[in-house]
Design a binder for these strands. Structure first.
Lengths: 235, 235
DNA sequence: CGCGATTATAATGCATGCATTAAATAGATT
DNA sequence: AATCTATTTAATGCATGCATTATAATCGCG
């Protein structure tokens, strides 16, 4: 019998509280613990094979990051991302990424660094060609992570990473509704081109315009999702 | 004898770990625990009048936020903010506030909401008139908090608040070096005016230009600080 | 007297114990 | 039978205990 990720044996030597933190967060991101999932500390401790202390510590941290809600006697509860949350996170991430694109372009990356971006975009193109949504999502995620990491501002990196990770909670949702992301590939390539040229102004404009379009499409998607949620059995 | 903030008796009924978190963070922000300050868990627990468990939890959270460094057997250590950190945080905060200003202007605030901004600006003007740096800092902080809170994006609010709070760690430093912030008052008033008109475009331009100037001035200040640090006893 | 090895000390991470308290269940009264 | 109360159960937050391990101190040896 196959163990669930939550029960996956400890591989590295990180402290237990850190293990608990990572594994529970992973379980939330993978929807093994779906929205609304509840559990009490003793049950979690049992599943994770440790005592309540490190679990409790992990839960407090996850609450700090907004993944769960902790109520005195109801244990943890995976919080729902409202349509508003999705909108807000996307908007914030857009703002952070535009800033990152600007700073990255201003930094003038090396040829090797740029090659990694090209790789990610090539992977996105291949995935789009093959209509492989999962592969596209993975490559797109990789691209955004690269863009963020390349900016050089560690505080921006930490913050944007945190929200990019959180955005993975609803990526599956939006990607199920959105049309094939041809524009994303084109725009990302254009941003990389601006970075290659060391042209922050263009990088900002391209990425901002792209994000603006994406936000408009997202609003449509969210409206449809809202309708579906309101009347899921409508003909 | 007067008790230090760290020893200030517990007033509200928040859990002890939360008390520990707040009091230690406050001690760091107020420089009661200055950069480099070290302490072991048992000592902290004693000072805070609780056991090690809630203290440990608080320390992990503070490490998450980058306030302290936790080393296995050296306890907590208040991390230094490098000139680079100051630069990065200011840059990130600028980016977040420009976004907040835009969204706030797009939201069209009520007259009462705008009045609160006017109050803060009036306080800044009075403080500048009286050359009262502390009062100006307080009012300026209030203004930025208002701007952030008014934007309506809760994720942006949480994030910007976190960094605004962190920026208080070096506010005293930069305010000791900077020239009288006349432009700040004027620009903030102009941003409020744009918000009043419901003109996001202007709000962005004004605030962005202001932040750009401030970053340029900051760079000068940081250079001087860097020089001072390199040769503190120079004639 | 100095330096390396060994022992002692103590800080940490986690387990467990305990008091508190909220939810559930059983019981009593109308 | 229904509702209010009393009792039980158990989850949480914190205190304490314990094993581990790193640092410090002591001791032995050159």
């Amino acid at each position: 019998m196959q163990s669930s990720p939550l029960l996956k044996p400890v591989l590295d030597d990180a402290p237990q509280s850190e293990q608990a933190y990572r594994r529970i967060k992973q379980a939330i991101l993978s929807r093994e613990m779906p929205v609304g999932f509840q559990s009490l500390e003793p049950a979690l401790a049992l599943r994770l094979g440790m005592s309540r202390t490190p679990v409790h510590e992990a839960l407090v941290r996850l609450q700090d990051e907004g993944y769960i809600d902790l109520q005195p006697r109801r244990g943890m509860r995976v919080v729902a991302l409202s349509l508003r949350d999705i909108r807000e996170i996307t908007e914030l991430l857009a703002c952070l990424e535009v800033e990152a694109a600007q700073q990255t372009a201003a930094r003038r990356l090396s040829t090797e660094d740029i090659a990694v971006f090209d790789d990610a975009i090539a992977a996105m193109d291949r995935a789009l060609e093959a209509s492989d949504i999962d592969a596209w999502n993975e490559a797109d995620y990789r691209f955004h992570l690269l863009l963020i990491d390349a900016c050089g501002n560690r505080h921006l990196i930490d913050t944007a990473r945190r929200f990019l990770e959180k955005a993975n909670r609803f990526r599956y949702l939006t990607s199920a509704y959105r049309k094939p992301p041809v524009y994303s590939n084109v725009n990302h390539a254009a941003v990389v081109e601006a970075i290659r040229r060391g042209d922050p102004q263009s990088a900002v404009e391209i990425h901002r315009a792209h994000k603006r379009r994406w936000l408009a499409e997202l609003d449509e998607i969210l409206m449809r999702i809202g309708d579906d949620r309101a009347a899921p059995d409508a003909p």
